[in-house]
């Protein structure tokens, strides 16, 4: 790793905007934070005195909990705002909400929104750091970072790996962030789904697309199996849930034909018996729960880096104004 490298971004909005070096740097820093999460006292004073707001316009348990724990383990104070119970209901705009949160002297805003690009709008409107916790179909950068962190931990590298992303590619921000991140770090990415769930032109992102699961599994070093989001409009893409398991579900039989050390990932929550059988989810190739553990280390690294960069930015602005 380059010793001279310094993180300078006040926000983390998506992996599309990052260089390979920046992504590597986050992963390296996350490795250091992982050590913290294995201690008896899992807390460091790095963000003492800072306040983190989790601003969630979409329901989320695991991502929010992960960010909350990450912030607390950095000694920050955390405030959770769920949009369903806030003034958003009364018609307040995103920017107004952001400015009001900023007026509370909050240092970091972690935002999840059902509209793609909402975190970008927020980041331009406020001087606090903004971290995207998932926006529409756009990006979910910390999920992709924790996937890549887990992959690197398991296989020692990202470059040159064959990674297949299987599931609803069309409506998945997890897929999009993974594609940006993995291709930047030199992995060969294949996406696989029923035709209606593969967006047209996806090859332009530097991936191979296929509707044939066997093709996607053959030679894969890792697979990232996405959740079928029945609460969204995916039901039209295939006749029934059972049909999906039959054609696209990861089963023991299918796994038996793959590389022996294949890494099986899933961002959760799993629909057991739909995109993946229970035996696979709980099997020896599955790293699903490690992904959850790594999520905290990755989010600690992200919160720490953007916060420090924002502090430096403010200090430098003050210094140049003084001079």
């Amino acid at each position: 790793m380059n010793k001279k490298f310094a993180w300078t971004r006040k926000d983390l909005l998506g992996l599309e905007y990052l260089s390979a070096e920046e992504i590597e740097f986050i992963l390296y820093t996350a490795g250091s934070f992982k050590e913290v999460t294995t201690r008896q006292i899992k807390k460091v004073p790095a963000l003492r005195g800072k306040t983190v707001v989790n601003l969630f316009y979409e329901p989320s348990t695991r991502t929010r909990a992960s960010f909350e724990l990450a912030a607390k383990r950095l000694s920050a104070d955390v405030l959770n705002i769920a949009a369903e119970s806030s003034s958003v209901k009364k018609g307040e705009t995103l920017i107004d909400t952001g400015k009001n949160i900023e007026a509370l002297k909050v240092d970091l805003i972690v935002v999840r929104h059902n509209c793609s690009g909402a975190p970008n709008i927020l980041a331009r409107a406020v001087s606090s750091s903004v971290v995207n916790a998932g926006d529409g179909w756009h990006e979910h950068p910390t999920q992709a970072l924790l996937d890549m962190f887990t992959l690197k931990e398991k296989l020692g590298r990202i470059e040159g790996l064959n990674v297949s992303i299987i599931g609803d590619i069309a409506h998945s921000r997890v897929a999009r962030s993974n594609i940006w991140g993995l291709t930047k770090l030199g992995a060969k990415v294949t996406v696989c789904a029923p035709g209606m769930l593969i967006p047209e032109g996806i090859e332009k992102m530097g991936v191979k697309a296929t509707t044939d699961l066997e093709e996607a599994l053959e030679g894969a070093d890792a697979i990232n199996v996405l959740r079928m989001q029945f609460e969204r409009d995916v039901a039209v893409a295939f006749p029934s849930k059972f049909e999906y398991l039959k054609n696209y579900g990861i089963t023991t039989e299918r796994l038996a034909k793959c590389k022996k050390e294949i890494v099986v990932m899933h961002p959760g929550p799993i629909n057991r018996g739909i995109e993946m059988s229970s035996e696979v989810a709980d099997g020896k190739n599955s790293v699903i729960l490690e992904q959850v553990t790594n999520g905290i280390a990755v989010r600690m690294a992200v919160l720490y880096l953007v916060s420090m960069a924002n502090d430096n930015r403010k200090t430098n602005t003050k210094a140049s104004l003084g001079a």
Binding site: K3, T29, S32, A46, M308, T315
Partner: peptide, 23 residues
């Protein structure tokens, strides 16, 4: 021991120090 996360002068140093793992 890596002490970066315990420093009280993080915002005063010019370049951001890299966080290494404690062993």
């Amino acid at each position: 021991l890596d002490i970066t996360l315990y420093r009280d002068d993080l915002t005063q140093v010019a370049a951001q120090p890299i966080v290494h793992a404690t062993e």
